[in-house]
Design a protein around this nucleic acid. Sequence first.
DNA 1: CGGACAACCTGGCGGC
DNA 2: TGCCGCCAGGTTGTCC
Length: 278
Amino acid sequence: MPELPEVETTVRGIRPALLNHRIVDVWLDWPQGLATPDPEVFQARLKGQRIREVTRRAKYIIVTLEADSLLIHLKMTGRLYVVPDDSQQYADQWVHFRFQLDNGYQLRFSDSRKFGRVYLVDDPAIVTADLGPEPLDPAFTLEAFQRRLARRKGKIKPLLLNQSFVAGIGNIYADEALHLAGIHPIRSASTLSEDEIVALWQGIQSVLADGIAREGASVNWYRKPDGTKGQAQNGLRAYGQTGRLCQTCQQAAIEKIVIGQRGTHFCPNCQRETHYGR
DNA sequence: CGGACAACCTGGCGGC
DNA sequence: TGCCGCCAGGTTGTCC
């Protein structure tokens, strides 16, 4: 479930310990998690490189080195920890990568389901080329959102999960954004009114910003780099709230359906299937 | 382009 | 208590 807010929180958490330090050693026991290059090349190229910057693009963590970029995608159950190199804390059996730094700290990548992926490339665009706009970037204007939406005919929920449409939204924040905007997740993108598009554009930015402010949603697996939970799960109004009274209208219980093979939560009163305009 | 579905994995949980 | 089988969801790839 790491989505944009969880990945952003992770970046902020690991950045201070990493910045301007060198990677002096690399250990891994899950070569399949390494998308590119081969482990031997990976280790050889990483050793000695100084970390210039730690940033995020969509759900990718980008560690910019002197000559290369290290990209990490947490997928479903990935966690990054920064701990003293001899720490037994957060040395669980799911740690598959360890990056030893020159300051006595270790960056550990733990991933119980092994869906996560690590890339070492000379240009991060090799990995991020097909991603859509960053929803919290100033360039993500209402006009830009309207323009992208205009060409789409599919259901709005799967569209929000499409990373080439808008980058960084996952199942939790898609449900939250649609709930905030009062839009039924099964609605076709082409039927949204002007007002609904504005509400959705604002809703996306609002739920993501709130998620970051609360340091991510630890619905189950997600943890911050210090091992503690985020708090965004406490502010969710739709995701995981099945059967609970809607906090927005206090008129109906949140329902769960499946759209595009994804569990989808919504309020049948706030989010009407035949709610065109308002 | 869109929709359906399988694949990648394994912990957690409901049901019996 | 123990076992079985399903569910969870980010992303890619395949097929229609």
